[in-house]
Design a protein around this nucleic acid. Structure first.
Length: 417
RNA sequence: GGAGGAGUGCCCGAGUGGCUAAAGGGGACGGGCUGUAAACCCGUUGGCGUACGCCUACGUUGGUUCGAAUCCAACCUCCUCCA
């Protein structure tokens, strides 16, 4: 393997961020010569990013830390098209209003990882809707369409998969690749951007942009991709009980976020330390030997580091402390999810099945009943014996709460008010 | 425009008149073993009710039948071939 000389590529490679690249030697020289401008594009199909996006955000962070200028490209325009990559069916198109709403919320996530501003290595955020909505069909086709070979587009994974699986692929979606390629050219013109990064599934789109750029602008364009964030056992990353690992604290509490990273499998710990934390290589190599004898200690560090970046110092330590009290002392911490119920209801007695549903530990009464039958439901850490059991004021701790659990890890505090 | 094929639960997929809330797998959740891991084993997996039960569900809408995911008609969507 080649040795890189620029700090960015050296670190990106040694920490495991690199998957494929177009002309890495030339990019290395460029990065050595001075600040490079690079971008990663993001869809705005949802109101939050999840764990799967974390890797690319961390790469932008590393890019900035090593002296370069990151551009966050929000796909306000391309989201109207919907990227067919990895999708079997066409997505429901989003309205402009939904897109703008999502966009505003997604912006706040980046501000925790990147420094935005006007300086030479400050990050900027742009929305491709600004130029895509102004495109006119005939001129666009004349100028750019001629550079695209349908023969080659048909061979792109995203397209080929759909065709092979006999799933529909609309012409609208087929155009996604052109617009993403055009984005690269536009960013080059506006900001001197010469590198596009992205997930490995974006390789085809990225290469299309590199090719188009070279032909239209007669300049060198570079592309590189990041490996997919997977678990050691090959599964896709990013599910907690019942949902995705959202980066937005309103959609997934910092406590649950912390729990997720605390519960990864041993074999992933070292890799995630490199990919998802700010810890230096020296610190990580100091921690690595400890994973074998005491994996849980290192997992706690990992969880706290990742949570600190995403939710801040306070939220991270509160999550760690709540976990310590919940699991190591058997009491409960402040960051446990809490719901309020009326004290009068509790005085009358309330079915535990109903409580499980209200606490969102179960999604229906039937599921709650099954949970109790299976021995997974606990009230104040004592298994609920019968599905007809009621909770009453006698179950309250002196502080006015009781603890309801589904399984060993999911706990909710019920507070009587 | 013509001919043929397809649409099943979170996903994949079997089922071609009653024994079907629908095989099997995946995923998810719970239990066991552990370390709040992984692997493995067991269980659960439409809703409501303590239960006999009721309701909702096999693209949509109607129809045939004592009875339909299964048969018929129309429509919608997709695929393949022809023009």
């Amino acid at each position: 393997m080649t040795e890189y000389h620029s700090e960015f590529l050296q670190q990106a490679k040694s920490r495991g961020y690199l998957y494929q690249g177009t002309d890495m030697e030339a990019l290395d020289e460029l990065a050595l010569a001075g600040p490079v401008t690079a971008y990663i594009g993001y869809d705005c199909t949802g109101p939050s990013f999840h764990a799967g996006h974390l890797l690319s955000i961390m790469l932008l962070r590393l890019f900035q830390k090593t002296g370069h200028k990151p551009i966050v490209l929000m796909g306000g325009g391309t989201t109207k098209i919907a990227d067919p990559t990895g999708k079997d069916k066409q997505r429901q198109p989003l309205t402009t209003r939904q897109i703008n709403k999502n966009l505003a919320r997604l912006k706040t996530i980046f501000s925790r990882y990147l420094t935005f501003g006007d300086g030479p290595t400050d990050a900027i955020m742009v929305n491709n809707n600004d130029w895509l909505r102004r495109l006119r069909y005939i001129p666009f086709l004349q100028k750019y369409g001629s550079h695209f070979s349908v023969n080659r587009m048909l061979k792109q994974d995203s397209v080929r998969d759909r065709l092979e699986r006999e799933q529909p692929l609309s012409f609208l979606e087929f155009n996604y690749s052109l617009l993403q390629a055009y984005d690269f050219v536009e960013l080059s013109r506006r900001f001197g951007c010469s590198l596009q990064m992205g997930g490995s599934d974006q390789w085809g789109n990225i290469v299309a942009g590199v090719d188009l750029g070279r032909r239209i602008e007669q300049k060198a364009f570079y592309g590189l991709t990041i490996p997919l964030l997977t678990t050691a056992s090959g599964g896709k990353m990013g599910k907690t009980e019942g949902g995705a690992v959202w980066l937005d604290g309103d959609m997934l509490s910092p406590y649950k976020f912390w729990q997720f990273w605390r519960n990864i499998e041993d074999a992933d710990v070292e890799r995630y330390l490199y990919l998802l934390t700010d810890l230096s290589a020296q610190e990580i190599s100091r921690l690595s030997p400890l994973i074998g004898p005491d994996p849980n200690a290192v997992k706690k560090i990992l969880a706290t580091e990742i949570t600190r970046l995403c939710h801040g110092e306070d939220a991270a330590s509160e999550a760690a402390e709540t976990a310590r009290r919940t699991f190591e002392e058997g009491t409960s911490g402040d960051a446990l999810p809490t719901i309020d119920i009326k004290r009068s209801d509790l005085e009358a007695g309330i079915a535990i099945t109903k409580l499980l549903v209200d606490a969102e530990l179960c999604s229906s009464g039937g599921e709650a009943r099954r949970m109790i039958r299976g021995g997974g439901a606990k009230l104040n850490d004592i298994a609920v014996g019968n599905e007809l059991d009621m909770a009453t004021v006698d179950d309250l701790f002196p502080n006015g709460t009781l603890k309801l659990s589904a399984g060993k890890k999911r706990h909710v505090l019920i507070r009587a008010v």
